[in-house]
């Protein structure tokens, strides 16, 4: 079966600073794959390259067989990207925002309505969707954006720090939301420095630090391999080696 994402020897430099030193990994359709690592490890750079908004210095990334540089326009039709701590247009209402984003992806107004309806159901924001986004809490905005990211049923969703800066209750809601929506076959590439969150959410994880992937495996597999009780301890062990 064709892989949702194949990243091979990906490098990215900002001037003299090399943020990615040639990372490689694969994501299967329907799989939740997480890049875990501290701030500045290169997670966001990797996600932005896959989302076609940064160009790699060398190496390749293919989304369902399409190259992120040569076929960027076609890839954008089947992915969705949610940046870390992203905001939305504060003057628009929640519904207005969903409608605007849906119109960018939909082929006609019927499909657009279907997208908006799906996102409205997923957010659970109810009547608050008619209020201006400027009045939303951080958690509400994140739910809105996440439902926007999955409303088009993308083949690959790229989510940077899904619960960054959220309180415990909002974070749990968001994790459950991601789990629910991936049941339909959508592949997810996410990044997080919250190891416990990743352990709960992901099918497989890649441990990344200073632009290098140190190990890849399932959370259980990695814990068994290094004989540790949780991913946090695995991470410390891997990075120290």
């Amino acid at each position: 079966m064709e892989q949702a994402l194949v990243v091979e020897n990906l490098k990215k430099s900002y001037g003299k600073f090399e943020a990615l030193h040639g990372i490689s990994f694969e994501v299967a359709p329907g799989e939740i794959f997480a890049l875990i690592g501290p701030n500045g490890a290169g997670k966001t750079t990797a996600l932005r390259i896959v989302a076609t908004i940064l160009q790699p210095t060398s190496g390749t990334a293919h989304v369902y067989g399409m190259d992120v540089q040569k076929d960027a326009a076609r890839i954008r039709e089947i992915i969705s990207y949610l940046p870390e701590e992203a905001g939305a247009y504060k003057n628009l209402t929640g519904l207005g925002y969903l409608s605007f984003m849906a119109e960018l992806f939909a082929s006609d107004s019927a499909v657009q309505r279907e997208y908006v309806q799906r996102a409205s159901d997923i957010t659970g924001l109810g009547e608050r969707l008619r209020d201006r986004i400027g009045t939303y809490s951080k958690g509400m905005t994140r739910k809105l954006l996440l439902s926007r990211a999955v409303m088009t049923c993308p083949k690959l969703a790229i989510i940077d720090e899904p619960t960054g800066g959220l309180d415990v209750v909002a974070a749990i809601d968001i994790r459950q939301l991601i789990r629910r929506t991936t049941a339909e076959g959508m592949a997810v590439l996410l990044s997080s420095h919250n190891m416990l969150e990743v352990e709960y959410l992901s099918d497989r994880v890649a441990i990344i630090d200073k632009g290098t992937i140190h190990d890849v495996g399932t959370p259980r597999g990695l814990k068994d391999k290094y004989g540790k009780a949780n991913l946090e301890e695995v991470f410390v062990q891997v990075v120290k080696q």
Binding site: S80, P83, E84, E85, A86, G87, A88, Y89, L145
Partner: peptide
């Protein structure tokens, strides 16, 4: 607001 990143993708 990081809406530009979203828009670019």
């Amino acid at each position: 607001n990081k809406t530009l990143e979203t828009l670019l993708s």
